[in-house]
C-alpha cells in the first residue's frame, strides 16, 4: 500500500476508535444515573436519611446521606480503576506518576476537591431531591463553566462559535432550572437543595476539567484518573466522613450496614459505570480531539433520560427534555469548531 492510502486508513481507524470511546463514555455516564438514583431508596441510605432527618431536619440529612453515598461511589470507582490498571499493567506507572507531586499529581488532588465534594456530591443531591433526569441534564452546563474559567485562567480565546454554543447551553439551562422552579413555586414547595446540587455538578465538573487537564496532558490518563479518585477517597474517608462522625452524625454505623449484597451490587455498578465513563472519555480525546470527545460524551444527558425511562418508566418534564436538547445542541456547536484539524488540537 502506498503512503497516501495508509495515511487515510490510519486516520480512519483513529476516528472510528475515538468515536467508539466517546460513545462508551456517553453510555456509561448515562447509565450511572440509574444506580445513583436507586441507591437512595436502598438500605442503609434510606434509613440513614430518616434517622438524621428526625434530629437535624431534611436538608441536613440529605447532604449528610449524600456524603456517605458519594464516599462509597468514590470507593467503588477506585476499585474499578485499580482492576483496570492491573489489567493494563500500569501499577508501575501509577507509582512513578504519584511521586511527581509538584509537576503532576498535585493537579489531580486539586481536581478531586472540585470533582468529588462539589460535582459528584451535587449530582447525588440533585438525584436524591429532584431526580436522575434533572441531575443529568443540569450538569450539561459544565462546558460553560470550563470555558469561562479557561478564558480567565489560561487566556484561552472564546471563539464566536463557542460563544454561540455557550448562549444556547445557557438558554437550555434556564429552561431546565426555570421550568422545574415555576411548577414547584406554584405547588408551594421548592427543593432548593436539589437545585443547588445541580449547579454544584455543573460548576464542579467545569472546574475539575480545567485543573485536571494540567496534569493529564503529561501523564497517562488511566493513571491520572486513578490518582484523581485516590484524592477523592482521601477527602471523603480520611477528612469529611470522620469529621461528620465526630460532630455526631452516625456515619460509621450506617457505613458498615452498606455491606449487604444488593446495596453493594448497586454501588459496584455505580463504580464501574462511573470509572469507565471517565477512562473512555479521556481515551477518545487523542483520537478525535477534546472537542468532539466532549461533544459526543455530552450525549450522556440523552442516554440518562432514555435509561431512566426504560428502567423506571419516568418521563421527565418537557422543560427538562427541551433544555437537555438545547444543551446537547449547544455543546455540539461549541466543540465541533476544530473540524478537519484532527492531529493537533492546541498551539501551533
Amino acid at each position: 500500500m502506498d503512503l497516501k492510502a495508509l495515511k487515510k486508513q490510519e486516520s480512519k481507524r483513529k476516528i472510528s476508535k475515538g468515536y467508539m470511546w466517546a460513545l462508551f463514555c456517553a453510555v456509561f455516564w448515562g447509565i450511572w444515573y440509574l444506580p445513583g438514583t436507586v441507591v437512595w431508596v436502598l438500605n442503609p441510605f434510606d434509613e440513614m436519611y430518616g434517622a438524621v432527618a428526625e434530629t437535624n431536619g431534611d436538608a441536613v440529612s440529605l447532604v449528610v446521606t449524600a456524603v456517605l453515598i458519594t464516599a462509597f461511589n468514590a470507593l467503588t470507582v477506585m476499585l474499578a480503576l485499580m482492576v483496570w490498571n492491573g489489567v493494563l499493567q500500569k501499577f508501575g506507572e501509577l507509582g512513578r506518576t504519584l511521586k511527581e507531586f509538584h509537576p503532576c499529581s498535585k493537579w489531580f488532588f486539586l481536581a478531586s476537591i472540585f470533582g468529588g465534594p462539589v460535582a459528584i456530591l451535587g449530582s447525588f443531591m440533585a438525584m436524591g431531591f429532584i431526580g436522575g433526569a434533572f441531575a443529568a441534564v443540569a450538569a450539561l452546563l459544565y462546558p460553560v463553566v470550563g470555558s469561562v474559567l479557561a478564558y480567565y485562567w489560561y487566556g484561552e480565546k472564546i471563539t464566536k462559535r463557542a460563544a454561540i454554543g455557550i448562549v444556547v447551553i445557557i438558554i437550555g439551562g434556564i429552561t431546565i432550572f426555570g421550568g422545574g422552579l415555576i411548577t414547584e413555586l406554584g405547588a408551594g414547595e421548592v427543593p432548593w437543595i436539589g437545585y443547588l446540587g445541580g449547579l454544584m455538578a455543573a460548576a464542579g465538573w467545569g472546574i475539575e476539567g480545567a485543573i485536571a487537564g494540567k496534569g493529564l496532558d503529561i501523564s497517562e490518563p488511566d493513571v491520572g484518573l486513578t490518582l484523581r479518585f485516590l484524592g477523592e477517597n482521601i477527602i471523603w474517608w480520611i477528612i469529611i466522613v470522620p469529621i461528620l462522625a465526630i460532630v455526631g452524625f452516625p456515619m460509621y454505623s450506617f457505613a458498615i450496614q452498606a455491606f449487604e449484597p444488593l446495596t453493594l451490587l448497586v454501588l459496584i455498578f455505580a463504580g464501574i459505570t462511573f470509572g469507565f465513563c471517565y477512562v473512555s472519555w479521556y481515551k477518545s480525546f487523542p483520537l478525535i480531539g477534546v472537542g468532539r470527545g466532549q461533544g459526543i460524551g455530552n450525549l450522556y444527558g440523552l442516554c440518562a433520560i432514555i435509561f431512566i425511562f426504560l428502567f423506571f418508566g419516568d418521563v421527565p418534564q418537557w422543560t427538562i427534555l427541551l433544555g437537555g436538547a438545547l444543551c446537547v445542541a449547544g455543546s455540539f456547536i461549541m466543540f465541533t469548531e476544530e473540524a478537519g484539524e484532527l492531529e493537533t488540537l492546541r498551539g501551533e
Binding site: 503512503l3 495515511k7 496532558d217 503529561i218 497517562e220 480525546f285 487523542p286 493537533t344 488540537l345
Partner: peptide, 22 residues
C-alpha cells in the same frame, strides 16, 4: 501502549507529526 503515549502528546500539542513513511 508507549506509542499511544506519543500520539497523546502529539494530540495535546506538545509534539508535532512532521513526516510519515511506510
Amino acid at each position: 501502549s508507549i506509542n499511544f503515549d506519543i500520539i497523546e502528546l502529539a494530540s495535546g500539542g506538545m509534539l508535532k507529526d512532521i513526516e510519515q513513511k511506510v
